[in-house]
Amino acid sequence: MKAIRAKYNPAHHAFAVFTALATLVVITAGALVTSNDAGLSVPDWPTSFGYLVKIPHFVGGVRYEWSHRMVAGTLLTLTLAIACWTLLVESRKWLRWLAIAAFCTVILQAILGGLTVLLLQPPWVSTAHATVAQTFFCLAVCIALFTGQKWIEEPPRVEFDTRRPSLLMLTLLSIFVLYVQLILGGMFRHHGMSWWPHVLNAVIVSFVLAWTAIRAISVYSNIEAVRRTAILLISLLIVQLCLGFTAFFTRVAWGQGAVQPELPMVASTVAHVAVGALLLATTVVLSIQVWRHVPVAFEERVSEAQQHNASVA
């Protein structure tokens, strides 16, 4: 990634940040739909009660489902705009492809949303819808990161990582366990699986993420991009664990016989989903920052560097 050659475009970056924030809004709206069991309150798709944009009687579950569809439609437009804008102004070829990938992902996400409605919420389809949503959020955050001034104008401060497992490997492992957690959580929420695999994996996620964040903070605190992201990661992990406990107690332990979704269970679950999305995106950003600033020192590379230093001396 030849970051220095690119030119910083403040408007383009601001729009990318806005698109990423809009994605979080759509994820939150989607979580509200599931938490209120309103996913099938509008039985048709892509139309809503036969119309594309006509506002229906705005009561009950329709409020959540229809609003989710509208903000998702807006996000699709925003993604198209950022993709076109990136194609027009961006000199980095890989970033242009990333913008196209983001647009394809949002289309896939819309199709999965439609299938969820038309196939009456099969757990795997609904879980795929939830997983692709967070994948798209990560892509949107990455575009915002790569179009940012710091990424473009500040040269990376490189420190070779000689520890094993490397920090990069830990961040990749963190992303993997988070994806597993996302799938297990989605399956539980959509009645395809019991709660315990999600809770069990939460222990693994906590361990791996804490290990990753502590390693980053303790060893690479002099690299601001890594330190800040790692601090955010550990903070979000703590918040997420608290929300997970709250969601478990309000929904599983106390709310199992509830006759309708109650505010504590809806609020805690929606927040758990939103913070989960932020946690995944932060881990992806940390992984990218580690890849940029803390490359893995392979033995050959170290010896080559040493040889070079020796010859210079």
Binding site: N36, D37, V59, G61, Q260, P261
Partner: peptide, 10 residues
């Protein structure tokens, strides 16, 4: 049987 518009309806 449920109503997704009114989640208490079962």
């Amino acid at each position: 049987v449920k109503c997704n518009q009114h989640p208490w309806m079962k």
